[in-house]
Structure formats: C-alpha cells, structure tokens
Design a protein around this nucleic acid. Structure first.
Lengths: 236, 236
DNA sequence: GTAATAGTGTCTGTGAGACACTATAAA
DNA sequence: TTTATAGTGTCTCACAGACACTATTAC
C-alpha cells in the first residue's frame, strides 16, 4: 500500500464485474448477451458492467444481475451470488486497462431475461454451446472457472437446492447433480444421503406427479443448512 | 461491459494487491509490516502495493512477495501463492477508491524478511496476535478469510507439504495440521492416511533424529500430487 | 531407568456403492 | 400391458477413528 495521496502516483484502472449466471434445464445453461458494438461486436459475452465509484464491487454485481435478469439478491430470492475471482491480465480488454471481478450466480431459471430492459438481448444457452462459442474478452476462461466452482460446490454445500427452485422432488434434485456433474448417480443412495443430511431439505407434505409418468413424489424445499457434512463426492 | 472508449465515461480506481503470507513455526504465523505514514500510521498491515499499469494483477502479487521476502514464485521455490478474493468496499481506504485483490501465500519459513529492502520493517507474528491487533484498512477481514482458506485447503490438497519445507518427517507434517487446524489428530492414523495417498509424499531414504528426543524418523519430500483424494477431514 | 518420538497392529462402526425389489402413476 | 418414476432393503467393502503396543533415541 503506497502512502501517497497524489493521484498521479498510482495507475488508474477501470473495474468491471462479470457474472456467470448458471441454471439447469435439460442441460446446464448460462446467461449471455450479444455485444452490439466493438470490440467483439456480435460475439457473445457474459453480462456485466463497470463498477461505479460510489458502490462496492459486490453491490455492483448485485445491481448488474438485477438489471440483466430482474433477480434481486437483496430481496431474498432463491438465487445465489458469490465472488468467483478476479481477472487482471494486462491486455484482456483491447481498449484500456480493465480489471474484472467475476461472480458466480445460481438460479432456478424461474425468471427469464426481461425484454425492454438492459437485458433485452440476453439469452440462455447451454454451457456446452458457450464453451464452443468464441466468447468476448477472456470470458471463456471465466466460464470455465465458474463451472468448475459450481461443480465443486455441489459436493460440500446445499447449493443444488438453489438450482432446483423453491420446491422440488428428490428426483429433480438428483437430476441437478447429474446435469451439473455430467455423471450418473445412484438414485437410491442419493435419496438416503440427502435425507440423512440435516438441514439439506425439509418435507412440505405435498406430493406431485411427474409430467413424464411415474409414481407421485414427495415435494421438498430447501433446509436451513448450507454445508454438506460429509460431502457428496463426485465419481472418481 | 460498457462500449465507450472515452475515459471520462467510467470511474477510475486504484488497484492494489495484499498478501497474507502464512508459515508454521511453534504456531501459525503471518508476515506483517508496520505502517510508517498515514493513514493507519503505526498500525500493522499486510504487505502489498499498487498494481502497475503494465503488469497483470497476479504478476503484481508475485512482485510484491518477492520485494517483501525475497521469495520468488517463478523460481520454483517451495512457496505457494493463490488468489484469495477481492475486497471492494467503498470506504476501505480513506484516501481514495481502492480495490484490493488479496492473495494467500504459504511458505516453510526458510526465508526471513530481508533487511535493506522494502521489507526492512516486515516481521512474522502469530496469527492469534494479528487477530488481536487492530490491523490497518480491512486487513483483519482479509486475514480471517485467508486463514479459513488455508485450513480448508489442507483438507483436500497437499499444501501442508509446502508449509513443511523441502524435506520433513511425518511427525513434522502432522504438526502442521495440528497447528493450522488447532486440533489434535491421531498420529498413527495420520501416518497411514498420508502414506496411502498417492503423490502426497515420497521417501528420501534419509533418517533424521528429532532435537527433542525420540527414535530417528524417515525423511520425506513433497510428491507430485496436488489433490488429496479422499480428503483428510477436520474433526467435526 | 524415564521421556519422547517413530512406527505397526487391530478392532469397530459408519457409510458409500452396487443392486435388487416393490409401489404407483400415465399411456 | 409397458414405461417411468418413487421409494426401500440389503449386502459388501473401504476406511476413519480409537487405542494398544513395540522400537529406538536422548538424558
């Protein structure tokens, strides 16, 4: 930390936030926007924007998320948002020196991007497609880090319940794990594990019939716990 | 991401790096510097400094670490350095808007801060003392995050071997865990666990006698592995 | 001898994984 | 009926944890 007060003594940066918002539908999806101007015009990019001088970096992330999707983290929605990491390569933005703080968001996909807002051009695409796409800036690298973080977090936190929505069956929760991890999980063992973990899910008393047939399933909602002890391990 | 090229369209920030460098001696220690000027003159602070306009944020962290301690991450020392998180509260620096990218460093304490360098006023103090101290800026918060990260990483990575130095006995490695976690661990079970984990340690063939008596112990060095599968769990 | 550390043996309980099985819905 | 899902039972193997024990050094 320098001790100077003179602005000319330290380099000046722009600081942005970029948000990797993930959800699970048939497959793992990510919210992207199409850039309308240079640089990277026409390319897909992660939603984000400049941090304002009078707001914290975290607040900027929440604001951008709200502007792009209408999801309001402060308003106790079922959405999770956490800092992922900071990307500070010298030439990551061709215009000027920009340091970007990336965030990982998880949502149950209830809310589609709202037209008529900043998010008019936002869309959900599969993560597989996004990885194939030539994303703007270093957003491909950020996406990879976010997906890996999400996969790891399902192991030792109850965040899958956030991806599953306000209420869900254990079959639906099970699919979240299979889709995010891209692996098969024994449903019977998974059920026992989840039900044995205090604070993961709690029963609502309601039963629901699957649209694809089968017996009616008990509906659960998120429990109060956040950690999974012991964790659910990915297949080795 | 804004599309403007005009500097006046986006707020200007200073970006710093702050480094939480930990080592294990009798207890867990952290490298701190005493501030010589305002603000927070006389207070202890984490080593760090401004990111230059032509260096990446990661490079700035490596440079600061080298300047403060002589440890050169590029030069294949036994030191670990990873990004911890970014602290971007509006008023975290009373002089101006500063966003700080914090790093967690782990070292085996071979190298003491060098006098006659930037680090002339640097010193190792126990983490317990640092937590009691009124650190400058939001460095207390950063320290807490770093210690928790280090504790968690010992569970599922082989980083303890980095804290233990170039070569070590299993008894020494065992103490690293007990000191960082602040718990007791059964030595017999720990030994079996470590030796059964492929890539954690490898024998050097050398034996060493402890200065505090006891039978001579086999000396090991770090293995090539980085992950601990399955992890060593902290006591619940 | 005692103290301290290194290293091994062994038992037990828990729990993950594999897999079989029954039950209940839709088509 | 078949198909798809929900939910339970059970067996086995691995392993973490507890703890006893021997071995080897310094003092």
């Amino acid at each position: 930390m320098s001790d100077s007060y003179r602005p000319e003594d330290f380099p000046q940066f722009a600081v942005t936030v970029d948000i990797v918002l993930l959800s699970v539908a048939d497959s793992l999806r990510v919210l992207v926007v199409e850039r309308g101007v240079e640089p990277f015009r026409g390319r897909l990019a992660l939603p984000g924007g400049f941090v304002q001088i009078d707001e914290s970096v975290d607040a900027a992330a929440r604001r951008e998320l709200r502007e792009e999707t209408g999801l309001d983290i402060n308003g106790m929605s079922g959405t999770h948002l956490e800092q992922l990491g900071t990307f500070g390569a010298v030439n990551r933005d061709p215009r000027m020196r920009v340091v970007s703080v990336a965030y990982l968001g998880l949502t149950s996909q209830e809310l589609e991007p709202r037209h008529g807002t900043d998010a008019a051009d936002a869309q959900w695409i599969t993560v597989a497609a996004a990885k194939r796409s030539r994303l703007a800036f270093d957003h491909r690298e950020i996406l990879y880090a976010a997906v890996e973080r999400a996969r790891a977090k399902l192991e030792y936190t109850t965040l899958a319940a956030t991806l599953a929505g306000p209420d869900f069956t254990l079959g639906e929760l099970h699919r979240i794990y299979e889709v995010v991890w891209g692996t098969k999980l024994d449903l019977g063992n998974f059920r026992r594990k989840v039900l044995a973990t205090h604070g993961f899910v709690e029963p609502t008393g309601v039963r629901r019939v699957s649209p694809s047939g089968g017996a009616p399933a008990s509906v659960y909602r998120r429990g109060s716990g956040t950690e999974l002890i012991p964790p659910i391990r990915r297949a080795s």
